[in-house]
Write a protein that binds this DNA or RNA. Structure first.
Lengths: 158, 158
DNA sequence: TATTGTTATACTCTATAACTATA
DNA sequence: TATAGTTATAGAGTATAACAATA
Protein backbone atom coordinates (compact mmCIF):
# COMPACT_ATOMS: atom_id res chain seq x y z
CA UNK A 1 0.00 0.00 0.00
CA UNK A 2 2.50 2.54 -1.18
CA UNK A 3 1.42 5.88 -2.59
CA UNK A 4 2.56 6.13 -6.19
CA UNK A 5 3.04 9.85 -6.41
CA UNK A 6 3.79 10.71 -2.81
CA UNK A 7 6.59 8.59 -1.39
CA UNK A 8 7.32 8.73 2.31
CA UNK A 9 9.75 11.60 1.90
CA UNK A 10 6.97 13.80 0.49
CA UNK A 11 3.70 13.03 2.23
CA UNK A 12 0.52 14.28 0.55
CA UNK A 13 -0.60 17.63 1.90
CA UNK A 14 -3.88 16.04 2.92
CA UNK A 15 -2.36 13.60 5.34
CA UNK A 16 -1.47 9.96 5.36
CA UNK A 17 -4.71 8.37 6.47
CA UNK A 18 -5.91 5.37 4.49
CA UNK A 19 -8.59 7.20 2.52
CA UNK A 20 -6.16 9.90 1.42
CA UNK A 21 -3.65 7.32 0.26
CA UNK A 22 -6.42 5.44 -1.56
CA UNK A 23 -7.58 8.65 -3.25
CA UNK A 24 -4.07 9.39 -4.46
CA UNK A 25 -3.30 5.84 -5.57
CA UNK A 26 -6.59 5.27 -7.33
CA UNK A 27 -6.34 8.58 -9.14
CA UNK A 28 -2.79 7.90 -10.26
CA UNK A 29 -3.55 4.35 -11.34
CA UNK A 30 -6.46 5.54 -13.48
CA UNK A 31 -4.44 8.38 -14.96
CA UNK A 32 -1.58 6.07 -15.87
CA UNK A 33 -3.93 3.55 -17.36
CA UNK A 34 -5.65 6.24 -19.41
CA UNK A 35 -2.28 7.53 -20.53
CA UNK A 36 -1.07 4.13 -21.63
CA UNK A 37 -4.27 3.42 -23.52
CA UNK A 38 -4.11 6.80 -25.23
CA UNK A 39 -0.57 6.23 -26.44
CA UNK A 40 -1.41 2.71 -27.50
CA UNK A 41 -4.30 3.55 -29.78
CA UNK A 42 -4.87 5.33 -33.08
CA UNK A 43 -1.84 6.92 -34.66
CA UNK A 44 -3.11 8.72 -37.77
CA UNK A 45 -6.02 10.61 -36.24
CA UNK A 46 -5.15 13.18 -33.53
CA UNK A 47 -6.51 12.56 -30.00
CA UNK A 48 -9.01 15.41 -29.99
CA UNK A 49 -10.53 14.16 -33.25
CA UNK A 50 -10.72 10.65 -31.85
CA UNK A 51 -12.57 12.08 -28.87
CA UNK A 52 -15.25 13.49 -31.15
CA UNK A 53 -15.54 10.27 -33.13
CA UNK A 54 -16.03 8.20 -29.99
CA UNK A 55 -18.51 10.70 -28.60
CA UNK A 56 -20.60 10.54 -31.77
CA UNK A 57 -20.33 6.76 -31.80
CA UNK A 58 -21.50 6.56 -28.23
CA UNK A 59 -24.44 8.95 -28.12
CA UNK A 60 -25.18 9.74 -31.78
CA UNK A 61 -25.50 12.98 -33.74
CA UNK A 62 -24.52 16.18 -31.94
CA UNK A 63 -24.38 19.87 -32.73
CA UNK A 64 -20.94 21.53 -32.85
CA UNK A 65 -21.78 23.43 -29.66
CA UNK A 66 -22.65 20.23 -27.81
CA UNK A 67 -19.38 18.67 -28.95
CA UNK A 68 -17.41 21.77 -27.99
CA UNK A 69 -18.94 21.82 -24.51
CA UNK A 70 -18.15 18.19 -23.91
CA UNK A 71 -14.58 18.42 -25.19
CA UNK A 72 -14.09 21.70 -23.34
CA UNK A 73 -12.94 23.62 -26.39
CA UNK A 74 -14.32 26.72 -28.11
CA UNK A 75 -16.89 26.41 -30.87
CA UNK A 76 -14.46 27.71 -33.52
CA UNK A 77 -12.00 24.99 -32.51
CA UNK A 78 -14.74 22.41 -32.81
CA UNK A 79 -15.67 23.79 -36.24
CA UNK A 80 -12.10 23.18 -37.32
CA UNK A 81 -12.03 19.69 -35.86
CA UNK A 82 -15.32 18.83 -37.54
CA UNK A 83 -13.95 20.22 -40.82
CA UNK A 84 -10.92 17.93 -40.58
CA UNK A 85 -13.06 14.91 -39.83
CA UNK A 86 -15.46 15.84 -42.64
CA UNK A 87 -12.61 16.23 -45.15
CA UNK A 88 -11.41 12.77 -44.22
CA UNK A 89 -14.93 11.48 -44.70
CA UNK A 90 -15.45 10.36 -41.10
CA UNK A 91 -18.34 12.71 -40.27
CA UNK A 92 -21.05 14.57 -42.20
CA UNK A 93 -23.09 17.66 -41.41
CA UNK A 94 -26.86 17.75 -41.83
CA UNK A 95 -29.19 20.68 -41.14
CA UNK A 96 -31.13 20.50 -37.90
CA UNK A 97 -34.71 19.47 -38.63
CA UNK A 98 -36.33 21.98 -36.24
CA UNK A 99 -33.88 24.88 -36.00
CA UNK A 100 -32.27 26.25 -39.16
CA UNK A 101 -29.41 27.81 -37.20
CA UNK A 102 -28.18 24.52 -35.89
CA UNK A 103 -26.21 21.78 -37.58
CA UNK A 104 -26.06 18.11 -36.73
CA UNK A 105 -22.75 16.29 -36.99
CA UNK A 106 -22.84 12.52 -37.27
CA UNK A 107 -20.56 9.65 -38.21
CA UNK A 108 -20.37 8.32 -41.75
CA UNK A 109 -20.08 4.53 -42.15
CA UNK A 110 -16.34 5.06 -42.56
CA UNK A 111 -16.21 7.10 -39.35
CA UNK A 112 -18.17 4.46 -37.48
CA UNK A 113 -15.70 1.86 -38.69
CA UNK A 114 -12.79 3.93 -37.43
CA UNK A 115 -14.49 4.48 -34.08
CA UNK A 116 -15.03 0.74 -33.71
CA UNK A 117 -11.45 -0.05 -34.63
CA UNK A 118 -10.19 2.50 -32.14
CA UNK A 119 -12.35 1.05 -29.39
CA UNK A 120 -11.16 -2.41 -30.36
CA UNK A 121 -7.49 -1.38 -30.15
CA UNK A 122 -8.00 0.15 -26.72
CA UNK A 123 -9.95 -2.80 -25.43
CA UNK A 124 -7.32 -5.18 -26.73
CA UNK A 125 -4.69 -3.42 -24.63
CA UNK A 126 -6.91 -3.87 -21.60
CA UNK A 127 -7.92 -7.44 -22.38
CA UNK A 128 -4.33 -8.61 -22.64
CA UNK A 129 -3.76 -7.34 -19.12
CA UNK A 130 -6.93 -8.88 -17.72
CA UNK A 131 -6.08 -12.21 -19.29
CA UNK A 132 -3.60 -13.47 -16.65
CA UNK A 133 -6.00 -12.64 -13.79
CA UNK A 134 -8.07 -15.30 -12.07
CA UNK A 135 -11.84 -15.26 -11.67
CA UNK A 136 -11.73 -13.77 -8.19
CA UNK A 137 -9.56 -10.88 -9.32
CA UNK A 138 -11.80 -10.19 -12.28
CA UNK A 139 -14.87 -10.22 -10.08
CA UNK A 140 -13.13 -7.74 -7.81
CA UNK A 141 -12.38 -5.44 -10.75
CA UNK A 142 -15.93 -5.85 -12.03
CA UNK A 143 -17.39 -4.55 -8.76
CA UNK A 144 -14.78 -1.80 -8.52
CA UNK A 145 -15.53 -0.73 -12.07
CA UNK A 146 -19.24 -0.45 -11.30
CA UNK A 147 -18.36 1.72 -8.34
CA UNK A 148 -16.13 3.93 -10.47
CA UNK A 149 -18.74 4.27 -13.20
CA UNK A 150 -21.25 5.33 -10.59
CA UNK A 151 -19.25 8.14 -9.05
CA UNK A 152 -16.97 9.33 -11.82
CA UNK A 153 -19.66 11.41 -13.48
CA UNK A 154 -21.39 12.36 -10.25
CA UNK A 155 -21.07 15.57 -8.32
CA UNK A 156 -20.21 14.89 -4.68
CA UNK A 157 -22.67 16.10 -2.08
CA UNK A 158 -21.75 19.33 -0.35
CA UNK B 1 -23.36 -4.60 -16.10
CA UNK B 2 -23.83 -2.27 -19.03
CA UNK B 3 -20.96 -1.33 -21.31
CA UNK B 4 -20.42 2.41 -21.25
CA UNK B 5 -19.14 2.85 -24.74
CA UNK B 6 -20.81 -0.01 -26.53
CA UNK B 7 -24.56 -0.06 -25.99
CA UNK B 8 -26.52 -3.06 -27.20
CA UNK B 9 -27.04 -1.58 -30.65
CA UNK B 10 -23.27 -1.49 -31.24
CA UNK B 11 -21.59 -4.46 -29.62
CA UNK B 12 -17.82 -4.33 -29.21
CA UNK B 13 -16.01 -6.00 -32.06
CA UNK B 14 -14.35 -8.31 -29.58
CA UNK B 15 -17.52 -9.92 -28.42
CA UNK B 16 -19.84 -9.63 -25.50
CA UNK B 17 -18.29 -12.09 -23.06
CA UNK B 18 -17.84 -10.87 -19.50
CA UNK B 19 -14.12 -10.21 -19.73
CA UNK B 20 -14.51 -8.12 -22.89
CA UNK B 21 -17.23 -6.04 -21.28
CA UNK B 22 -15.10 -5.61 -18.16
CA UNK B 23 -12.11 -4.54 -20.28
CA UNK B 24 -14.19 -1.93 -22.05
CA UNK B 25 -15.94 -0.65 -18.92
CA UNK B 26 -12.80 -0.48 -16.80
CA UNK B 27 -10.88 1.29 -19.52
CA UNK B 28 -13.66 3.84 -20.05
CA UNK B 29 -14.14 4.43 -16.33
CA UNK B 30 -10.44 5.13 -15.87
CA UNK B 31 -10.30 7.38 -18.92
CA UNK B 32 -13.28 9.39 -17.75
CA UNK B 33 -11.89 9.68 -14.27
CA UNK B 34 -8.54 10.83 -15.65
CA UNK B 35 -10.30 13.31 -17.87
CA UNK B 36 -12.34 14.77 -15.03
CA UNK B 37 -9.30 15.08 -12.79
CA UNK B 38 -7.31 16.75 -15.55
CA UNK B 39 -10.01 19.36 -16.16
CA UNK B 40 -10.46 19.89 -12.45
CA UNK B 41 -6.86 20.71 -11.64
CA UNK B 42 -4.40 23.47 -12.43
CA UNK B 43 -5.66 26.25 -14.67
CA UNK B 44 -2.65 28.55 -15.24
CA UNK B 45 -0.03 25.94 -16.18
CA UNK B 46 -0.71 23.90 -19.35
CA UNK B 47 -1.19 20.13 -18.95
CA UNK B 48 2.07 19.12 -20.63
CA UNK B 49 4.03 21.40 -18.30
CA UNK B 50 2.18 19.97 -15.31
CA UNK B 51 3.18 16.52 -16.49
CA UNK B 52 6.85 17.46 -16.34
CA UNK B 53 6.49 19.09 -12.91
CA UNK B 54 4.83 15.99 -11.48
CA UNK B 55 7.40 13.71 -13.07
CA UNK B 56 10.25 15.71 -11.54
CA UNK B 57 8.46 15.78 -8.21
CA UNK B 58 8.01 12.04 -8.27
CA UNK B 59 11.38 10.76 -9.38
CA UNK B 60 13.72 13.74 -9.12
CA UNK B 61 16.07 15.45 -11.58
CA UNK B 62 15.91 14.30 -15.20
CA UNK B 63 17.62 15.13 -18.47
CA UNK B 64 15.52 16.72 -21.23
CA UNK B 65 15.78 13.52 -23.25
CA UNK B 66 14.48 11.42 -20.37
CA UNK B 67 11.57 13.82 -19.92
CA UNK B 68 10.87 13.85 -23.67
CA UNK B 69 10.83 10.04 -23.81
CA UNK B 70 8.43 9.78 -20.91
CA UNK B 71 6.08 12.47 -22.21
CA UNK B 72 6.34 11.06 -25.73
CA UNK B 73 7.35 14.34 -27.32
CA UNK B 74 10.44 15.33 -29.30
CA UNK B 75 13.50 16.74 -27.54
CA UNK B 76 13.04 20.18 -29.14
CA UNK B 77 9.50 20.29 -27.76
CA UNK B 78 10.78 19.35 -24.35
CA UNK B 79 13.44 22.06 -24.59
CA UNK B 80 10.65 24.54 -25.20
CA UNK B 81 8.57 23.20 -22.31
CA UNK B 82 11.55 23.32 -19.97
CA UNK B 83 12.26 26.88 -21.12
CA UNK B 84 8.71 27.92 -20.20
CA UNK B 85 8.94 26.28 -16.80
CA UNK B 86 12.37 27.82 -16.21
CA UNK B 87 11.14 31.31 -17.15
CA UNK B 88 8.36 30.92 -14.62
CA UNK B 89 10.91 29.84 -12.05
CA UNK B 90 9.49 26.34 -11.53
CA UNK B 91 12.53 24.39 -12.73
CA UNK B 92 16.27 25.01 -13.04
CA UNK B 93 18.96 23.49 -15.24
CA UNK B 94 22.25 22.25 -13.84
CA UNK B 95 25.15 20.70 -15.78
CA UNK B 96 25.39 16.93 -15.54
CA UNK B 97 28.21 16.04 -13.12
CA UNK B 98 29.67 13.24 -15.26
CA UNK B 99 28.74 14.08 -18.85
CA UNK B 100 29.20 17.64 -20.13
CA UNK B 101 26.75 17.10 -22.97
CA UNK B 102 23.86 16.41 -20.68
CA UNK B 103 21.76 18.76 -18.59
CA UNK B 104 19.79 17.99 -15.46
CA UNK B 105 16.41 19.61 -14.99
CA UNK B 106 15.02 19.76 -11.48
CA UNK B 107 12.30 21.54 -9.52
CA UNK B 108 12.94 24.79 -7.73
CA UNK B 109 11.27 25.21 -4.30
CA UNK B 110 8.56 27.20 -6.11
CA UNK B 111 8.10 24.38 -8.60
CA UNK B 112 7.90 21.80 -5.84
CA UNK B 113 5.22 23.91 -4.17
CA UNK B 114 3.21 24.04 -7.37
CA UNK B 115 3.55 20.28 -7.86
CA UNK B 116 2.30 19.66 -4.34
CA UNK B 117 -0.63 22.00 -4.76
CA UNK B 118 -1.56 20.32 -8.03
CA UNK B 119 -1.43 16.89 -6.42
CA UNK B 120 -3.52 18.21 -3.56
CA UNK B 121 -6.17 19.61 -5.91
CA UNK B 122 -6.41 16.32 -7.79
CA UNK B 123 -6.56 14.26 -4.63
CA UNK B 124 -9.25 16.51 -3.23
CA UNK B 125 -11.45 15.79 -6.23
CA UNK B 126 -10.98 12.10 -5.59
CA UNK B 127 -11.41 12.30 -1.82
CA UNK B 128 -14.75 14.06 -2.08
CA UNK B 129 -16.03 11.16 -4.15
CA UNK B 130 -14.64 8.50 -1.83
CA UNK B 131 -16.16 10.24 1.16
CA UNK B 132 -19.75 8.91 0.80
CA UNK B 133 -18.54 5.30 0.41
CA UNK B 134 -18.66 2.82 3.27
CA UNK B 135 -15.72 0.82 4.60
CA UNK B 136 -16.50 -2.25 2.51
CA UNK B 137 -16.60 -0.24 -0.70
CA UNK B 138 -13.33 1.47 0.14
CA UNK B 139 -11.67 -1.85 0.90
CA UNK B 140 -12.88 -3.10 -2.46
CA UNK B 141 -11.41 -0.09 -4.23
CA UNK B 142 -8.18 -0.47 -2.26
CA UNK B 143 -7.67 -4.02 -3.51
CA UNK B 144 -8.71 -3.10 -7.05
CA UNK B 145 -6.27 -0.19 -7.02
CA UNK B 146 -3.42 -2.46 -6.00
CA UNK B 147 -4.32 -4.74 -8.89
CA UNK B 148 -4.38 -1.80 -11.32
CA UNK B 149 -1.06 -0.46 -10.08
CA UNK B 150 0.45 -3.87 -10.58
CA UNK B 151 -0.56 -4.38 -14.19
CA UNK B 152 -0.85 -0.87 -15.59
CA UNK B 153 2.89 -0.47 -16.07
CA UNK B 154 3.51 -4.10 -16.89
CA UNK B 155 3.89 -5.68 -20.30
CA UNK B 156 1.50 -8.58 -20.72
CA UNK B 157 3.03 -11.97 -21.40
CA UNK B 158 3.02 -13.07 -25.04
C1' DT C 1 32.06 9.56 -35.41
C1' DA C 2 28.10 9.37 -32.04
C1' DT C 3 25.32 11.67 -28.66
C1' DT C 4 23.03 15.58 -26.06
C1' DG C 5 20.90 19.61 -26.37
C1' DT C 6 19.47 23.84 -28.67
C1' DT C 7 17.95 26.80 -32.61
C1' DA C 8 15.29 27.44 -37.16
C1' DT C 9 11.26 26.72 -39.64
C1' DA C 10 6.76 25.09 -40.66
C1' DC C 11 2.40 22.91 -39.33
C1' DT C 12 -1.45 22.04 -36.14
C1' DC C 13 -4.64 23.20 -32.42
C1' DT C 14 -6.63 26.66 -29.75
C1' DA C 15 -8.93 31.05 -28.40
C1' DT C 16 -11.07 35.78 -28.95
C1' DA C 17 -13.34 38.83 -31.97
C1' DA C 18 -15.94 39.82 -35.96
C1' DC C 19 -19.31 38.20 -39.29
C1' DT C 20 -23.55 35.61 -41.35
C1' DA C 21 -27.89 33.41 -40.96
C1' DT C 22 -31.84 32.08 -38.42
C1' DA C 23 -35.13 32.47 -34.25
C1' DT D 1 -32.27 41.27 -30.02
C1' DA D 2 -30.40 36.64 -29.10
C1' DT D 3 -28.44 32.34 -30.66
C1' DA D 4 -25.72 28.82 -33.73
C1' DG D 5 -22.21 28.46 -36.60
C1' DT D 6 -18.33 29.98 -39.39
C1' DT D 7 -14.32 32.90 -40.72
C1' DA D 8 -10.13 35.91 -39.41
C1' DT D 9 -6.26 36.57 -36.83
C1' DA D 10 -2.97 35.63 -33.35
C1' DG D 11 -0.79 32.72 -29.71
C1' DA D 12 1.01 28.29 -28.05
C1' DG D 13 2.73 23.34 -28.84
C1' DT D 14 4.79 20.08 -31.73
C1' DA D 15 7.88 17.97 -35.19
C1' DT D 16 11.78 17.60 -38.55
C1' DA D 17 16.11 19.39 -39.98
C1' DA D 18 20.25 21.83 -39.10
C1' DC D 19 23.68 23.29 -35.76
C1' DA D 20 26.99 23.46 -31.48
C1' DA D 21 29.31 21.19 -27.87
C1' DT D 22 30.99 17.16 -25.67
C1' DA D 23 32.16 11.98 -25.51
Amino acid sequence: MTSIESPREQPAAHGEDEVSVLASDLRMACQRLARRVRFESNKDVPPHQVGVLLRLNRIGAQTPTQLADHERVSTPSMTRTVNCLAEKGYVARTPHPDDGRQVLVDLTPSGRDLARRTIEARDTWMLRRLDPLDEEQRALLRRATDLLIEFVDSEPRR
